[in-house]
Amino acid sequence: MASATTAPIDTLPPAAPQSGLFGFTRAQGIALAVMVAAIVALPFFVYPQFLMKLLCFALFACAFNLLIGYVGLLSFGHAAYFGMGSYVSAYASKSWGLPPEVCVLIGGAVGAGLGLVFGWIAIRRAGIYFAMITLALAQMVYFFCVQVPFTRGEDGIQGIPRHALLGLVDLEPDMRMYWFVAGVFLLGFLLIHRIIHSPFGQVLTAIRENEPRAISLGYRVDDYKLIAFVLSAGLAGVAGGTKALTVHIATLIDVNWPMSGEVVLMTLLGGLGTLFGPVVGAGVVMTMETYLAPFGAWVTISQGIIFVACVLAFRAGIVGEVARLLRVKL
C-alpha cells in the first residue's frame, strides 16, 4: 500500500541503456579497475586480517543492496542470514573438517534456505511492515541461536580451522586466506552486477520504480521479489561463512540486530542502489569502528550520527553524490 502512494526511495534515475564492456559503463569499468588494483595492492600496506574482514562485510553490504537498492525492499534482518551462514560454516569446518570452499557454499545455502522461508512470509507486506517483519523474524533466529547447543551460547564457536582450499592449498597463513577472501568477494560482486543487469534485474528495477505498473504488465511481482530475496540472503550467508573462517570465530554478535543495522548503515552511507556504494560504505564504517573501538559506546553514537546525517543531508550516499557530481553512473 505504501509503495503505491509515495515516491520511490531516493536512488539514482533509472538505468540508461547498457553499453561498454560486460555491461559496465566506462565510469564503472574504471571504478572496477581501481577497486581490483586496491584489492591487489592493499594487503602489502594494510593489516590483511582487517582487509579480509572488510571484504566480507563489503560482500554482505552488496548483497543487502541488491534488495534495498534494486527492489526497494528494506530488510532489517539481514544479520539472520549472515549469522546463520557464519555459524553453519564454522560448524562444518570445525566438526566435519570440510574444506573452506564447501563450508562457504554450505553457509550460502543455509542463508538462501532461511531467506526462502522468511522472504515467503515477509513479502506479503511492503514498505515499513516489511522492515519490521524481517527484523522480528531475524530476532527469532537470534533467540534460537542463544538456546541451541551447536552455537555454544555466549562463547560462540571458537578456534575454527581454515583447512586447505580444494584440499590442496593450506589457507592458515593470512596472505593465502586473503586471496581466497578476495576471490569470494569479487565473484559475489560480479554475480550481483550480472543479476542487476540481466533482464531479471531490469524487472526488479521496474518493481522498485512502479510496482502496480509492473503487475499490470503481467509480471508476477511476488516471485521476482522472492527470488531477489533468496539471492540476497544466500550471498549474505556466503559473506558470513567467509567471515567465520577469516576470524576463526562465530558468535551471537553476527546474528543479533545491531549487525542488521550495521549493514543498513554501510549501504546507506555508501549509496543505495549504486554498484560500488556498499563497498565504500563498508570501508568507511569498518575503519571508523576500528579506530573508535577503544572508546566503548562512541562506536554506537557515531553510527547513529552517520544514520541521522545520511537521512537528513545526503541521501544519495558517498558514491551517489560523487556520481552526481561527475554525472556518471557508478
Binding site: I9, A131, F307, V311
Partner: peptide, 14 residues
C-alpha cells in the same frame, strides 16, 4: 519514503 523515518529514528535510538 516512509523508510527514511525508520532509518532516522533508528539512528536516533543508537
Amino acid at each position: 519514503d516512509h523508510l527514511y523515518g525508520l532509518l532516522l529514528t533508528f539512528g536516533l535510538a543508537l
